[in-house]
């Protein structure tokens, strides 16, 4: 039996979702692709065990977050370059302005703060789930969320994310 049987189908079904999360975590499409490929390579390496008795989805999600956090050691993160929030005089609606500001603000968060924002407000994870994925306590999730939101509010346009 092929040791990777079922892996391709697993990836086909989830890679886009993983890429979106990775993109939010890293803020860079190339880094996101590197991140997802790194994680999927690990998943493939353990596939025979994961497919048999494990939970590949949970393992992959957790590995994605762990890998993102551990990259701090391997590489410092690239800041999102070049995007400035346009003046209100230009033809941009409030939502567009907010998103542009959000991109820049996310880049200024620490990897851990960025992860809690993505997991709590993009993936809609509970505090417990977020703590489990990040390998930290619920208290840490609460405090990191608080710090991250404070930063986002300070950096985002007025009245956003209140």
């Amino acid at each position: 039996m092929d040791r990777y049987e079922g892996f391709r189908e697993f990836v086909d079904a989830r890679q886009q979702s993983l890429m979106r999360t990775a993109y939010l975590l890293t803020g860079d499409s190339h880094l996101a692709e590197d991140l997802v490929q790194t994680v999927l390579t690990r998943v493939a390496s353990h596939w025979s065990r994961l497919a048999g008795t494990g939970n590949p989805e949970a393992y992959t999600r957790k590995a994605l977050v762990n890998q993102h956090l551990s990259w701090r050691r391997r590489r410092s993160f690239s800041e999102i370059a070049g995007l400035e929030v346009p003046d209100r005089g230009e033809a941009h609606d409030d939502a567009t302005l907010r998103r542009l500001a959000l991109r820049q603000s996310l880049a200024k968060l620490s990897p851990k703060q960025r992860a809690v924002i993505v997991l709590r407000f993009y993936e809609d994870r509970s505090e417990q789930e977020t703590a489990q994925l990040m390998g930290c306590s619920v208290g840490t999730v609460k405090s990191q969320t608080r710090y991250a939101l404070s930063k986002l509010r300070a950096l985002a346009p007025e009245e956003a994310y209140r």
């Binding site: 990777y4 890679q15 979106r20 993109y23 997802v36 999927l40």
Partner: peptide, 25 residues
Amino acid sequence: LRDDLHELALEAPSVDLASRALAAA
């Protein structure tokens, strides 16, 4: 915030990583 994160996430490029991940594994 949720809406903006979802909008931002849509900027992620489409990928086909299964073959690359398998080769790397």
